[in-house]
C-alpha cells in the first residue's frame, strides 16, 4: 500500500459538454476517513462524482486527481473500479435483459482478478450475496431480475449498497444514496455503509441533507457551491446547514472574494 493519501484532488477544473462546472476544487481523503460534501442543486457535487468515476463527456480542464498516488485521468472507467473506486449512483440505470445476479458475479470477479485473487466459486459467491442481501433487507428474489428493472427507488439504492459491500472498495463515492429513502430504509442503508467503514477505506458521501449523516457520522464536512468548496469543517457543519441553509456560506464566500479583490 502506498503512503500517498488515498485521494488527492488538486485545483480541479472540469466541464460537462463544454460548460465549466468545477472551478478549482481541492480535497484530500486519507484512509479511514469519511467525508461528506453538501451543497445546493447545481453546485457541482454530482459532476465531481462522475469525474471521479470517469464518465464520458465529463472532462478535466485543469488540475488533477491522484488515487493512491496515480493520476486518475490515465485510468479508464473499469480500471478505476477494479482498483477499488466505487460510485454509488444517484440514479442507478435499469438494464433490461441482464440478470442482477450474473452481473454481480461478473463485477466481483473482475475486481478479484485485478487484485490477483481467484474467481469466487458459485457457492461461495451466492453465500456472500445472500448474507449481504439479508443484512440490507433486500429481497433475494430480486437478484434473479434484470438490473434495477422495476425496482422501486429504495430497492435501487439498496442494490447499490449491496454492490458496494460485495466489491469492498477502498474509496466509496456515494452520490445522494439517501435520496428517495424512507426512514427505515435510510437506517438499513446507513448500517450497510457504516459496516464498510474501516482504517483501510475512505468514503465520500454526497448529499443534500444531513439526515444520512446522523447515521453515518462523517469526520469532515465540506460545503460546495458554484463548483467550489466554500467551507470545510467537522460534522457540526451539517447541522448548521440544516438550520440555516446554504445562503450563509455562499454569502460569506462572496464577502471573502470581495475582500480579496
Amino acid at each position: 500500500m502506498s503512503s500517498a493519501p488515498l485521494l488527492q484532488i488538486q485545483n480541479l477544473h472540469a466541464e460537462v459538454d463544454g460548460k465549466a462546472i468545477l472551478r478549482g476544487v481541492d480535497l484530500v481523503l486519507e484512509r479511514g476517513q469519511v467525508h461528506a460534501i453538501m451543497g445546493p442543486n447545481g453546485s457541482g457535487k454530482s459532476t465531481l462524482a462522475y469525474i471521479l468515476a470517469g464518465k464520458d463527456g465529463y472532462d478535466i480542464t485543469d488540475g488533477r486527481i491522484l488515487f493512491e498516488g496515480s493520476d486518475l485521468a490515465e485510468m479508464d472507467v473499469e480500471t478505476r473500479a477494479r482498483a477499488g473506486l466505487f460510485l454509488g449512483f444517484q440514479y442507478p440505470v435499469a438494464i433490461d435483459g441482464v440478470a442482477t445476479i450474473s452481473f454481480l458475479k461478473e463485477a466481483v470477479n473482475a475486481r478479484r482478478a485485478a487484485a490477483g485473487k481467484d474467481k469466487l466459486d458459485a457457492v461461495a459467491f451466492l453465500k456472500q450475496v445472500r448474507a449481504f442481501a439479508a443484512q440490507l433487507s433486500f429481497d433475494e428474489s430480486m437478484l434473479k431480475r434484470y438490473i434495477n428493472l422495476g425496482f422501486s427507488g429504495g430497492e435501487k439504492k439498496r442494490a447499490e449498497i449491496l454492490q458496494m459491500l460485495l466489491l469492498e472498495p477502498t474509496l466509496a463515492v456515494l452520490d445522494e444514496t439517501d435520496s428517495g429513502l424512507d426512514v427505515d430504509a435510510l437506517k438499513t442503508v446507513a448500517t450497510g455503509i457504516e459496516s464498510l467503514r474501516s482504517p483501510e477505506r475512505a468514503m465520500l458521501l454526497i448529499t443534500h441533507y444531513q439526515r444520512l449523516l446522523q447515521h453515518v457520522r462523517p469526520d469532515y464536512v465540506h460545503i460546495m457551491a458554484d463548483g467550489n468548496i466554500l467551507h470545510s469543517g467537522g460534522p457540526e457543519l451539517a447541522q448548521k446547514v440544516e438550520d440555516g441553509g446554504y445562503a450563509e456560506f455562499q454569502q460569506s464566500a462572496r464577502t471573502a472574494q470581495t475582500a480579496q479583490a
Binding site: V93, I95, G97, A107, A110, L167
Partner: peptide
Amino acid sequence: DQEALFYLRARGISEGNARQLLINAFLND
C-alpha cells in the same frame, strides 16, 4: 445504451464484456 455501458464499466466490467452483456441482453428474447 451509453448510460448502461457506463454503469457496467463503473463496476469493473471491461468495455468489451459490457458491450457483450448488453448485446446479449438485446438478443435474449
